[in-house]
Design a protein around this nucleic acid. Sequence first.
DNA 1: GTACGTGCAAAGGTTTTGCATTACA
DNA 2: TGTAATGCAAAACCTTTGCACGTAC
Lengths: 133, 133
Amino acid sequence: MMIDKYRDIGLKLTPQRIAILDYLEGNKDHPSADEIYKAISKRFPTMSFATVYNTLSTLREKGAVLELTIDPAKKRYDPETSRHNHLICVTCKKVVDIPVDFALELPSGARHGFTVMSNHVEFYGLCPACKKQ
Amino acid sequence: MMIDKYRDIGLKLTPQRIAILDYLEGNKDHPSADEIYKAISKRFPTMSFATVYNTLSTLREKGAVLELTIDPAKKRYDPETSRHNHLICVTCKKVVDIPVDFALELPSGARHGFTVMSNHVEFYGLCPACKKQ
DNA sequence: GTACGTGCAAAGGTTTTGCATTACA
DNA sequence: TGTAATGCAAAACCTTTGCACGTAC
């Protein structure tokens, strides 16, 4: 489980961090830092914003979560760190994983001298709930 | 030119808006609102932030600029509104246009009931300047 | 015991808003 | 002239930071 992954990285396992890891484990909602904070502080009232941000920042540095730049209003976090893409509702910003790998290659003429390392595809659309309105 | 496009939309052409349109015309830098403000206020000292944001917001609603959610720190704006993709330097956040259309299709099994409208590919890499360091 | 994490509050950066004034059409 | 944009300042958000205290190891 995720807690083992964290211990293997060699970081201190505090109750707050365990709560965050527990919340993220298998989470498919791509939550924001605020959502994570709100969810955990129900059961953990002394938890502070700074701890959430610190922990997310550490997890990102260790490659244990992805920081998604998908929603202009705030960063969102994804515990699924294997290569995948996303489908985003333009109305409610719901995000779902797309486990398909498109194996995109950039023609060398389009690389502008960059060393290309990776890519990410965002699909935009309307989710079932938003279509009804 | 862009000013004509703007007039055709039926909006008032103020000197401030003309300055913004002029700055964006053919601009390949994907500037942030702050960069637009700074560039224009050199020659137009009374220009306010609110006017830049109001104008960009109006242009976006009319489809005359794209708001890019590419840089976690701030929104960036792109006057090139035809379908294209982007290559981003992970170090300095330089963004260049990729005029290639990859014609990606999402397998229906991966659509989660969404109506898919469009997509956008982000390539990540190191630009020539950042590679040297 | 010590290095590192936590909590609190304040600050930083971007974007939005309210309202009186100004100016395009 | 009337409607809509501008300018200014304050506020709203999200995120980061400094520092004293607490705790995992």
